[in-house]
Deep mutational scan, measured.
Amino acid sequence: SEIVVAMYDFQATEAHDLRLERGQEYIILEKNDLHWWRARDKYGSEGYIPSNYVTGKK
């Protein structure tokens, strides 16, 4: 599975969105859409994140 790191904070506005915290790692579950990826955080929460807010883990 692909691990990404959040470059920016993202506040979830929709129920299906996942909040991003800058510097935290997330697991990508689905990339069915170019701009919104389904991800899981370290607490096990899942939701959609803006793909341009994250970068591949170095």
Rank of each mutant, 00 (worst) to 15 (best):
S1K: 13
S1D: 13
S1G: 14
E2V: 11
E2S: 09
E2K: 07
E2H: 11
E2F: 14
E2G: 08
I3W: 11
I3R: 09
V5W: 10
V5L: 09
V5H: 04
V5T: 09
V5N: 03
A6M: 01
A6Q: 01
A6G: 03
M7W: 07
M7S: 05
M7P: 01
M7I: 14
M7D: 06
Y8M: 11
Y8G: 04
Y8L: 10
Y8I: 08
D9E: 06
D9S: 09
D9C: 07
F10H: 07
F10K: 08
F10N: 03
Q11E: 15
Q11W: 13
Q11S: 11
Q11P: 14
A12W: 04
A12E: 07
A12H: 05
A12Y: 04
T13Y: 10
T13F: 10
T13A: 11
T13P: 09
T13Q: 12
T13H: 11
T13M: 12
E14Y: 13
E14I: 08
E14T: 14
E14R: 15
A15T: 11
A15W: 11
H16S: 13
H16N: 13
H16Y: 11
D17E: 15
D17A: 14
D17M: 15
L18I: 06
R19V: 09
R19F: 08
R19I: 08
L20S: 02
L20W: 02
L20P: 02
L20H: 00
L20T: 02
E21Y: 10
R22Y: 09
R22I: 11
R22N: 05
G23Q: 04
G23H: 06
Q24V: 06
Q24R: 07
Q24H: 10
Q24G: 09
E25R: 08
E25S: 10
Y26M: 01
I27R: 07
I27S: 06
I28L: 08
I28C: 03
I28M: 02
I28H: 00
L29E: 00
L29G: 00
E30S: 10
E30W: 09
E30I: 06
E30Y: 07
E30A: 09
K31F: 06
K31D: 06
K31A: 08
K31N: 07
N32A: 12
N32K: 13
N32E: 12
D33L: 08
D33S: 12
D33F: 09
D33G: 11
L34D: 14
L34I: 12
L34R: 12
H35L: 13
H35C: 15
H35W: 12
W36L: 06
W36R: 11
W36S: 05
W36A: 04
W36D: 01
W37E: 00
W37R: 02
R38H: 06
R38G: 02
R38D: 00
A39H: 02
A39C: 04
A39K: 01
A39N: 02
R40P: 00
R40Y: 03
R40N: 02
R40E: 02
D41E: 02
D41V: 02
D41G: 02
D41P: 00
K42I: 09
K42A: 09
K42F: 07
K42C: 08
Y43W: 12
Y43M: 08
Y43H: 11
G44W: 03
G44P: 01
G44N: 05
S45D: 13
S45E: 12
S45N: 15
E46G: 02
E46V: 10
G47S: 01
G47V: 03
G47P: 00
G47N: 01
Y48V: 07
I49H: 01
I49T: 02
I49E: 00
P50A: 04
P50H: 05
P50N: 07
S51M: 07
S51I: 05
S51C: 12
S51Y: 07
N52H: 13
N52W: 14
Y53T: 03
Y53Q: 05
V54A: 02
V54Q: 01
V54N: 02
T55W: 07
G56N: 13
G56R: 12
G56D: 14
K57D: 10
K57Y: 10
K57H: 10
K57P: 10
K57Q: 10
K58T: 14
K58H: 14
